[in-house]
Design a protein around this nucleic acid. Sequence first.
DNA 1: AGTCCCCCCATTTTT
DNA 2: TGGGGGGACT
Length: 739
Amino acid sequence: MDITHILDPLNEAQRQAVTSDAGNLLVLAGAGSGKTRVLVHRIAWLIATEGISPHSLLAVTFTNKAANEMRLRIEELLERPAGGMWVGTFHGLAHRLLRAHWKEAGLPEKFQILDADDQLRLVKRVHKSLDIDESRWSARQCQWFINEQKDEGLRSGSLESYGDEFTAVMLKVYAAYEQACERGGMVDFGELLLRSHELWLKSPALLGHYQQRFKHILVDEFQDTNAIQYAWLRVLAGGKAEVTAVGDDDQSIYGWRGARIENIQHFSRDFPGAETVRLEQNYRSTGNILKAANTLIANNEGRLGKELWTQDPEGEAISVYSAYNEQDEARFICSQIQGWIKDGNKANEAAILYRSNAQSRELEEALLRVGMPYRIYGGFRFYERQEIRNAMAYLRLVSSRDDDAAMERVINTPTRGIGNKTLESLRLLARQESLSLWRAASKAVTENLLPPRAMLNITAFMTLINELEEFARDKDLDELCDQAIQRSGLVKHYEKEGGEKAKIRKENLDELVSAAKVFTMEALDNDDESSITEVLAAFIDKAALDAGDTQAGAGEDAVQLMTLHSAKGLEFPTVFIAGLEEGLFPHQMSMDTQAGLEEERRLCYVGITRARQKLTLSHAESRRLHGEENLTRPSRFLSELPQNLLEEVRLQGRITRSTFFNDYAKNTYTGSEHGSIASSGDMADNESLNLGQRVRHPKFGEGIVLNYEGKGKNARVQINFDEVGGKWLVMSYARLEAI
DNA sequence: AGTCCCCCCATTTTT
DNA sequence: TGGGGGGACT
């Protein structure tokens, strides 16, 4: 078989990784070093030369996007479908296992997947039924606790509170939540992994079957695996399968949600005979950007070690802008992007990255002001929208009456006179008799347990669902979907609401019908035997496991705004990282432990390595946060960069500020003007000070001018001193010296 | 059932 | 500063 097309496009390190025949393999893939390429080519290599059948391969990633892309590229390279191969996310694969072996796993055949929103609702209900003080322990907190434990592979039964009140309350909720899930046949995200892991442990025959099957396991983004995922992998591999782990310890930024950087750090210990290959040649960024990244990350301890390099030129210096405040910062970035576009580049080649979402508003406003199109990543995705979730809940009920989460959601949405009181008695009945809500409702109606009015309304609702199912029998999924949103009254409900918002909701519902159509056609392509019931069930699972990354306006030519976390895996010709200030980045809540600080540093490393040609960093001397003005210090990360590669950006020229209190922030920024303290000659030493200018004070040392008020002899200036922080000084006494 | 108001809170996010 | 959620009121 001709294998040149597999090896030719690779560099030496990549080739070594692709062709490695050590039992296990760790590929330390630096940013922009061709990680996915290695993964894909290694798979092709195994199939082409080692005679491994796609059937014995399992490749696992974290996001659906990554999984889809991998499958696509494998098929492209192999020039045939890789059907027998298991490619998917951890959750997707675990789900597949549980669907196949639901009985052994102790689940009902039609178990439902709870997504984050369903989960929170359930926790809230559990919370209420246990009469827990909402003001002391929030449902969110409980949800977080439960997920944290599941990520660690721990059930309520295997935990102890040791007299700690918090833990005791959390465990009580956790245990009741587990029971509720059990009763309703519901499985949350963590449970998918936990349950399939347990399934293997308790059925050695089943485990043996999969161990027999999968000769090679390939894992992407290994540094992001959490405890349960790692355990899952180790059990499956069982010392027999060959494991290829690809990842970058320097890009581990999800420790806060259970990812364990130790998993990649200890790979060679836990997977004996592992070969380690480093991919250090970078095909993305300029030399200077890489040097900055390398220097920064060298401050972390316990790294596996890696140094990025490129054959490309040094490129431009890294710009650093010290803004007066967050508005100035936003205007600066905005004007730089305008300049970038004027130079013939496109808006979507520019990205603005920030540590926390709250920072986006100021940037948005600045972009809006100059009419620059922008797009914010993150936020609600398709299947997370309220109207879509409501419509899906009807479909879920059609598919499975026992889906309590769905029933709770839409039994009275839109309102049909089934109030809280009715619902409460149904819940009670359900709990007492260990029934699903639907069955409880059914019982209540047949046995006349409720006021006639309530029973009438419930009957109408149940009839609606039954009729929808009836209707679906000889129809396609999209037709069912359309009927569901019409007959449930959802469409009317949103129409009645009126306004722009409702219009968008209506459009989304239409979009759902189209999505159902596409899904049906794909299902028919793959397997023309599937009945509508099966297609419907598959559609519901897809909606739960894949929130739908199709972001509105994805293809638009707009400036890209996102958090540093969501920038991982992406790249842009020009990148701005805003808000490099102590307390913001590194964030206050993560800077007092070394582990926290190092993760922040890795986050910064991720940000820097997103840039291809040009990197611009900025910080503000003063930032409004939670409604109050705070003086800030530049981030330590700025001082950890090689100073010779940095170029401080100062805006040339100046405008003379009105001697009245003309708030600088309100001045229109043109990019060439600069706020300045009036130099109308009435200052003590007849010397003008500019906002943003560095000055020296005999006692306080050096600092930067932030603001002033008053004029003449009485003028007071605010200076942010490097050593002692912010101070207001009277001009005529301060003996300030401009630097 | 729906609206309004007040209080509280405030990284990062995928499945 | 502002958004979200919960409670109270109409």
